[in-house]
Every structure is written in C-alpha cells, then in structure tokens.
Design a binder for these strands. Structure first.
Lengths: 294, 294
DNA sequence: ACAAAAGTGTTCGTCTTACACCCATGC
DNA sequence: GCATGGGTGTAAGACGAACACTTTTGT
C-alpha cells in the first residue's frame, strides 16, 4: 500500500465554566492548547486521551468528544497528524506551573454577546470586513449572514466567523509575513492553528447544548436554576430569558428538586436542583433548547 | 516527546442516491469500504482524499466531510490510525472490477422505514433485545428510546442502534468467536469496523440534510419536486408528506423554477426546478427540515 | 420599606401538521 | 372515464416569546 510512518499527537480542549465564565486549559502562558503524544496500548484514542489528561491534571474528565483530525508540518519537516478532542470538566487548581485556565472569550472577544462590549467588537469588525468585501455580492452576503446586525446573530457559527476573519487577513496568525502590523481584531493569539481548534470546540459545544444535556458535566451535583442558566449563557455567549428558561428545563424533566435551598445571599433563597439519574445515564437522546431574550 | 511513527490510512464512504435508493461504493464483493494510504504532499487531509478518490473513480467528488478518526491494529501487529470521510456524488460506472455500488439498506435493513418490511425487521430485533434487556430498567429504557415502537422513531440514531445491537451480540462482526452461529439480525457484514463507519456516515447525513442543503450534490442539475423528495426519503429512510414538503422547500427559497417540465410519464407533467445559485455558493447557513408523515 | 432574586400565569403570534380538495396528463 | 402524479388552500394545534405580576428573603 505504500503507507509511510508518520508522527501523531493528541490536542485537548478542556473546558470548564467557573463563575459564569467559560474557561479553557492552556499552556505556555496561554499561547497553546495542551497536547501530547499518541500513546500505544490503549483500547481507543479516546481512552488514551482520557488517561493522559487525568494523569497530567489529576482530575477526572467527564464528557469527551473528538473534534477534528488534520495534517500538519511537524518539527523537522516531516508530516504529522493531530487529533483534537473536546473534554468537559470542572475547574481545579493545576499543578503544572506552565498550565493555566483562561477565559475563552479572551481569544474570541466578539463571541460574547452577554454584554454590550461584544456588540461593539462586532461593529468594529464589520467595518473592517465591509472594506474587505467591497462591492462583491458573495462577500457581502457572507458578511451579513455571519456577522449580521443584532437579530440574526447565530451563535453556532463560531468557526465560520473565524475562517472569514482569517480569509480577510484580520487574524494575526494569518499574516505571519507582515510582522509588526497592529492586530486588526482584538483577542489573544495562539500558536499554529490552536485558536482555530478552540473555535471548533466552542462551535461544537454551542450546538451540542441545544440537543443534549452535557451541562451537568460542568456543574456541581446540586445547583440552582440561575447557576444552570448562567452556565448555558456563558457557553452560548448570549443572555437568556429567565422565566422561560426555567420552564423549558422543568418541562423536559431534566432536573429534580433536592428539597434544599440556598441561603445567605441577596434575594429569595433558590431551590437546589440536581440532574435526574435517567439523564445522567441516558444522555443519548434528550436535549435542551435556548429561549433567547430580545 | 516520545512520538512513535505509526501507519495512517484514509477510509471513504462515498454516497449516491439512484432511483430512490441510497448507494455506497464498496470493494471486495461488498465486504469493505474503499481505503487508501495517507499521501504526503497535499494541502490537507481532505485535499488528499479528494485527489485519491477522483483518481480512482474518475468522477468529481462534491461535498466531503470528515467522519471520525480511530486507532486500530494494523496488519503486522503495529498500531495504525484510520481517518474516515463521507463524500457525496452521483453514481457513475466504476472501472475497478473489484468496486461496486451497493444499497446501504442491504447493510442496515432495519433502518428503512419507507416500506412495512423495515417495521417488521424492527419488531424482530426488539424481540431479541427484550430477551437481552431482561428486567434491567436501564437496558429497557435504552431499548425503547432507540427502537421504540412507531411514533418515537428517531432516524438519526443509526449509530446508537448499531452499538446497542453490537453490545447485545446481535451483530455477527461482534461475535467472531462463535463461528457458525446464524446471524441474529439481517444485513450484510463488513470487515473490521467498516459497517460501523457506514452507520456513522448514515447518521451524519441524516442529521445534516435537516439543517444544510447538501441534497443538491446527489441530484442532477434539474429535478422535479418528487425527485427531490424521494432523495430525502431515501436518506432519511422515512416517507414524507408531499404537500408540506413542497411548501417547506419553496418557503426556504432553496430552489427556482427552470420554466421547463417533464413529459412522457404517467400523471400530470411536473415543473423542473434547480437549486438557486445563492444556495450552491452559500451552503453554510440555510437548511431544511423534514415534515414527517403519520 | 425597599432592593434583589425566585418563581407563576397568561396572552399573542408563529410555525407545524394534517386534511380536503382541484388540476393536468396518459391510456 | 379513471388512474396517476402535480399542486393549492386552510384550519387545528403545538410551541415559543414576551409581558405582567406575586413571593420570599436580606438590609
């Protein structure tokens, strides 16, 4: 067959949500995602990743999902394969001094629409892109479809937006040649295409939460409706309608009351909920949708 | 880092729809999917696959999408990586005498619910699985969720159903040890986990057609509403409601009239449609949904 | 009393689904 | 005429979005 041996590595996007902020585990001062060699001897790639992550972070990994596999140039000129994974956990102190949790919107400021700053970032980007699009109808159509003002914002198109920005040379990683030029869009850079992998992970997760209950991997066992809502808002980057959100969740029989309530904070104590055992076990079928506000 | 060189290959699931039957390109008398070495020198894995397929089949490949990457035992005992892809085309005569197009329901008879036979296959399978589930509530819940009678049939859960059958040892590939035992479920076998890859492809495609217009890759330039409907029915394995189907398509501005009509067949001549240019170009955003009948 | 957060009821409009029916052609 | 497939109208009902309002705590 003529198969030539090649190098292979795993890249992990580990996600947690802490205090309403989606966080991702990074290394090298936030400039890269953790990656490691493909180890032989595991039942599957997924099992290999799980073992590797849990050995590195000493923290159990909940949900794991393969993202994408791509070929790249390895150090030394040879060809390599990288298999990227999305993993969900809860944030824990990291032992490795090189590793740290970072907010994912530090890398994608224009994707957070919970606050007006996100809208402003989008407006600034649209101005840049309008110049890039010029009078070409296809480019204009793409621009409005992906960054279209206000109403039509589709939070799942993270990767497509990143690719459009890349194409328009507004992403620093895309213009290695032009050193010294100021970054045309805000947001931290990453090495290689790690930021693109992160965009893929965000897009996948934003799509997934709508039809599969994976949020419980990110929450403590007991939680209030507001905590659940804020976790979803953090991932979606959008504010949700509180009364309708609680109805949507209860209607779907995703959660049950624990009988206990919170105390000590401002306002009326909130009931504590937990995910129903059937959901934890049978997370294959059910799902949940987002009632957007405004 | 300690990366050890490994073998890598590509596996392709090439799909076409001919005369209302979804077809897949196979080799070795229908027992395997076409696969080939990972070639160096291409821009991306996807470009490599495209070049390889078009060289082999002499037929252009429309839509291509990565399915899954997994590790397996290579001939010779070493570890290998397989990257599988879904590709959409129109059926063309194959040159390679070893290759042939096959209906995908030959491999998954229980997934075709356009005719009563599919229902009967499901009923027979449910009887087997009920014995396997016994009194265990979790197993029973999974059984009804995946194979649940009539109303709740979710056509997208192809892979989950296959995995359940595998777990229950009803798939011949899962019981290599017990040679000679009769196949407990109908359907052709495949080598290694190729049938599982095919299940992944079917599931992905059934999900995709609901939110992205990829059907046009499978149809001639001009087509009637019925042809479009039958193509979708073939993929979904379910019958659709004709009047509502046509409204759904026209409402979404997916197609435009060509001005011409069919002739010669039974019944009133049908208008010929084609996909709107904007759809062909901008196939990122729009989608389509299924109005199920009954 | 008031602020802050929890939680409930109900209306209005849209989108889905189903049913009923008419139209044009070949045999 | 009638079988076959093409095509349109419309009403019932499910679902989502929005608004108004009540409840329970801390200060």
């Amino acid at each position: 067959m003529g198969n030539e041996p090649i190098q292979a590595e795993l890249i992990a996007v580990l996600v947690a949500v802490t205090d309403g902020a989606p966080r991702v585990l990074t290394i090298e001062n936030g400039s890269a995602l953790p990656s490691g060699p493909l180890e032989t001897g595991h039942r599957s790639l997924q099992a290999g990743l799980r073992a590797w992550v849990e050995r590195q972070t000493h923290h159990p990994l909940g949900y794991v999902e393969q993202l994408y596999t791509f070929a790249d140039q390895q150090r030394g000129g040879g060809r390599g394969i990288s298999v990227s994974y999305l993993g969900l956990t809860r944030e824990a102190p990291v032992l490795d001094p090189d590793a740290a949790w970072r907010g994912w919107y530090e890398y994608f400021p224009w994707e957070d629409h919970r606050h007006p700053e996100g809208q402003r970032h989008v407006a600034a980007i649209v101005r840049h892109l309008a110049a890039w699009a010029g009078p070409v109808p296809a480019r204009q159509a793409r621009l409005t479809a992906l960054f279209g003002a206000g109403e039509g914002w589709n939070e799942e198109l993270v990767l497509q937006r990143y690719e459009l920005l890349w194409e328009a040379k507004l992403i620093p990683e895309a213009r290695r040649a032009r050193q010294g030029a100021p970054a045309p869009v805000p947001g931290l850079e990453m090495t290689h295409d790690h930021r693109r992998i992160l965009a893929t992970a965000i897009a996948r997760l934003r799509a997934k939460i709508k039809y599969r209950p994976v949020m419980f991997e990110l929450l403590p066992r007991d939680f209030t409706m507001l905590e659940l809502q804020q976790t979803m808002e953090a991932l979606a980057g959008q504010s949700l309608h509180k009364p309708n959100f609680r109805r949507l969740i209860t209607q779907q029989d995703l959660v049950e009351e624990t009988g206990r309530t919170t105390s000590g904070l401002a306002g009326r104590p909130a009931k504590l909920f937990r995910f129903r055992p059937a959901v934890l076990e049978e997370r294959r079928i059910a799902g949940s949708k987002l009632p957007l506000v405004r």
